[in-house]
């Protein structure tokens, strides 16, 4: 697979594949730097998603649907059902958010299934030395999305829970442990605040790191499989041992790719569902307690 890179060790190959192609926006600033490859692919995939769904939406008919429309409606119906099952409030935003996350994250994850060196190799042809093609293996991308979800959660927590703003703050001090009387309330305020802070911090971290971990590990395994033949020359592939290793590499990559189809779908689904669950918590009012 990596026959083009006959020079360089396996270690180089691996680290090569795990480094983003960065561009500094501000000279010498490590924060004002963008991962050009991640940004490029994430926007590309977003555009693909939006154009495809928009084209279907434009031609959407209540009569007999085309096959494409049918396919899109199947996804929409699935997402809609999941959202209505989990989300008890009423919001025009949650279902579209869930759909966007599901499809977009799935597309990002899907990049993992493309032959690992295909796009980077095409990149070298136009002078890009290296790139990472799976946006969801970039911490910035997954945190960008989970922070986005959290911003929405905060927005709705502050506006939906009554009284506005104070309702959410009050929940921080009076949940999950509720007490009768002012003494109990004061005593429990500390533990409640602590638990709620931990919970609130854990939400975006678990949301993003779960996706990141799965995709990063998955990609790493693809890289390790690819490493099997990393220093092979053309002749090596046809030596008796080389054939065996190549066949093994093919089988391993194939099996892992099949298995990975499940993982990318599952992870996209989990990211979507957790976001909906968080949004549901933001819309919940604890008046019944």
């Amino acid at each position: 697979m990596a026959s083009g890179e006959s020079s360089g060790s396996a270690g180089d190959y691996i680290s090569h594949h795990l480094v983003n192609n960065t561009q500094e926006l501000v000279e010498g600033s490590s924060f004002w730097t963008i991962n050009a490859d991640s940004v490029f692919y994430t926007i590309l995939l977003a555009v693909i998603y939006l154009l495809f769904f928009r084209s279907v939406a434009k031609k959407a008919t209540a009569g007999v649907p085309s096959k494409t429309q049918n396919f899109v409606e199947m996804i929409l119906g699935f997402v809609d059902k999941q959202v209505t099952d989990v989300f008890t409030g009423s919001s025009k935003l949650v279902a579209p958010m869930a759909l966007s996350i599901f499809i977009w994250v799935w597309l990002m994850n899907f990049m993992d299934l493309l032959p690992i060196d295909l796009l980077p190799w095409l990149g070298t042809l136009i002078g890009i030395e290296y790139m990472k093609i799976v946006p969801s293996t970039d911490l910035n991308i997954v945190f960008g999305m989970s922070f986005g979800v959290m911003l929405l959660v905060f927005y709705y927590s502050f506006t939906v829970k009554k009284p506005v703003v104070l309702g959410y703050l009050k929940e921080f001090l009076t949940h999950p442990f509720a007490a009768e009387g002012w003494l109990g309330k004061i005593l429990l305020a500390g533990p409640n605040l602590f638990l709620n802070l931990v919970e609130t911090l854990a939400k975006p971290v678990s949301l993003s790191l779960r996706l990141f971990g799965n995709m990063y590990a998955g990609e790493l395994i693809f890289i390790l499989i690819a490493v099997l033949t990393v220093n092979y020359t053309f002749a090596d592939f046809f030596s008796p041992g080389g054939i065996m290793v190549s066949v093994m590499q093919f089988i391993l990559a194939f099996v892992w790719a099949v298995f990975h189809i499940l993982i990318i779908t599952l992870q996209a689904y989990i990211f979507m569902m957790l976001s909906v669950v968080y949004m549901n918590m933001a819309h919940e009012t604890h008046e019944d307690h």
Partner: peptide
């Protein structure tokens, strides 16, 4: 490392 990509993605 965390950088401006996060903001763009958001």
């Amino acid at each position: 490392s965390i950088n401006a990509t996060l903001i763009i993605q958001m």
